[in-house]
Design a protein around this nucleic acid. Structure first.
Length: 211
DNA sequence: AGCCAGGCCAAGC
DNA sequence: GCTTGGCATGGC
């Protein structure tokens, strides 16, 4: 299974090229931008997230120091384009407080999961892309893609189960985990959508569960 | 013009 | 434990 998964990875890399995630702007606090971005993108298109991030950048508050003290209503207005702004504003403030109160290298998965509004995928995205820890990020796309390829038999597999499955098969390599997840997202956004564009897909001949 | 997006939580079985 | 409804915006 390790070989199968790595073959898929290589094929994705070959088609789409190195993604070098997490995407950030020039001259920003990278860690803050990554962490806030993971919250903003929850069930939200990246285009909308960009608008919110642009607002935070132009107001000069895309850093934990500012966001830990920002007025909640002001933050809501700034992140409004990303939707769910009532809950996301609270989550962002709490997350920023965590980063202010603890050394970055001391922050663990359970610290993140304690914050309301941060679930497993968001926590693992922060750990992997922000803190360079080897947690494979599972999302809706990962389940869909692996299900269609016949890697897993049930698209409704639990987060923990799929993450465990992958992390048991593939060595815990931060760069590999970062890039693999990024490539899955890119592929699923463009091609392996809910209504897939199979004629554009290089995995067509090895795809078992077409919708 | 509806449907959906790089989820999460609380409430109800 | 698993399922469901609510949360909000903007692009296609």
């Amino acid at each position: 299974m390790r070989e199968i998964l790595l073959d898929i990875y290589k094929k994705l890399l070959d088609i789409y090229g190195f993604q070098n995630w997490w995407p950030t702007h020039e001259n920003t606090d990278k860690l803050a931008e990554i962490c806030i971005g993971t919250v903003l993108t929850q069930n939200t298109p990246w285009k909308n997230v960009e608008k919110a991030l642009d607002n935070l950048i132009s107001e000069n508050v895309l850093n934990f120091e500012s966001l830990s003290k920002i007025d909640e209503d002001r933050l809501k207005v700034l992140i409004k384009p990303a939707g769910f702004y009532n809950q996301k504003a609270k989550t962002i403030i709490e997350l920023s407080k965590l980063f202010i109160s603890k050394k970055t290298y001391e922050i663990e998965r359970e610290d993140l999961l304690k914050i309301k509004g941060i679930g497993k995928e968001t926590a693992d995205s922060i750990l992997l892309y922000g803190l360079d820890k080897p947690y494979f990020v599972v999302d809706r796309y990962t389940k869909r893609f692996f299900y269609r390829l016949g890697i897993i038999e049930n698209e409704n597999i639990s987060y923990d189960e799929l993450q465990k499955f992958i992390m048991e098969k593939i060595e815990k390599d931060v760069s590999l985990y970062k890039e693999f997840h990024a490539l899955i997202v890119v592929h699923c956004k463009d091609v392996c959508k809910s209504i897939p564009l199979c004629e554009k897909c290089v995995f067509y001949n090895q795809c078992f569960n077409l919708p």
